[in-house]
Design a protein around this nucleic acid. Structure first.
Lengths: 179, 179
DNA sequence: GTTCGCATGTAAAGAGTTACATGATTGT
DNA sequence: ACAATCATGTAACTCTTTACATGCGAAC
């Protein structure tokens, strides 16, 4: 079975959610996957084109009232199979996540403590903002989307974000003290 | 002030640690930064070349006994300044870390529970292995490098890795239960 | 008429990995 | 001879972002 990149699989997956056009896919990502997956239009449209070439999806032109025409993509049987195969494969290996703050902290060891503290406090602040963003989204889901079929999975991914962010904040506190 | 990419800054930083050649830089990364920063030779050598062109570093050929010749790089005043400027700048924004497991879990909502469980258990296993790796490195530092000037900072970065990994493991457990 | 949201797309630049090529020196 | 380690480098490829270009329809 031919291999595709993760962006292709992501778009294949999104096409199962009744998102049909490039524009809609972008919106879906920005609304639902934003905290662990981003894709730009520069990837979306070329990938959609490729999906059709590879016969993983078909195109249908659709005209709408009060809005410009758009192209709707539908998974083919082959497309569904390719997606399923990918879903069944576990992670090959954990990716290394680059962390600019850790890098700076490391090289800041001959710098002033003040500098490192500033770095860490700023990082902590950004993490706290992120945490609050997660909480806000979570509340929104609980209030308005509780019976949406995706709600459960949104909450899983948000929970991941919250837990990891919380751990990072705790590390900031501990490191600020230990400096 | 001209901007460079993070790889350039990372190498600039490593050059302050008495690593002088491309080969040595690669070793340093693999030994010390491996869990939050990776660079391949395909980046290192072209970047070093560029450092000299930009007058951020100078080259000195060095012959060694019993080993092939090598090129030693030394930061110029300009190089030190560029590094310092970068170190002083806080994160522009938190990067989005792609997470393939979350993506699959999300799209697996119409898949079988068995499939999602398999995915999560495998992920948890990999995280636990990583955690143990961190603990092993930590012990090694405590035993052999306790008075190395970098030891404190190695431990900070390891602590970060451990905390975040631990949080991810806890999420796996919680999500496996909630599925 | 202009701004906003919807909609599709491409070109160029930048970032990064992988695979390959080369060669010195040491030890077996 | 040979493998291992030390050492430097490049070319091709893949992936991603950014900036730009275009145009429809609605509302003000």
């Amino acid at each position: 079975m031919q291999k595709y990149n993760d962006t292709t699989y992501a778009i294949l997956g999104i096409l199962t959610t009744n998102c049909r056009s490039g524009y809609e896919i972008k919106q879906f990502i920005d609304n639902s996957l934003n905290h662990f997956w981003k894709i730009s239009y520069g990837q979306i449209y070329p990938t959609l084109k490729k999906l059709e070439q590879e016969e993983l999806a078909t195109i249908q032109a659709a005209s709408q009232e009060g809005k410009p025409d758009r192209k709707e993509y539908f998974l083919t049987e082959k497309g569904k199979e390719v997606l399923k195969d990918w879903l069944e494969q576990p992670l090959k290996q954990l990716p290394v996540e680059r962390n600019e703050v850790l890098l700076k902290l490391f090289f800041g060891r001959h710098q002033t403590k003040k500098q490192s503290l500033y770095l860490l406090k700023d990082y902590k602040q950004k993490l706290e903002n992120l945490y609050q963003t997660y909480e806000g989204i979570e509340e929104g889901i609980a209030r308005y989307n509780n019976n949406h079929s995706d709600a459960k999975y949104w909450l899983f991914t948000l929970d991941y974000g919250k837990r990891v962010t919380e751990a990072a904040i705790a590390w900031c506190d501990a490191t600020i003290k230990a400096l």
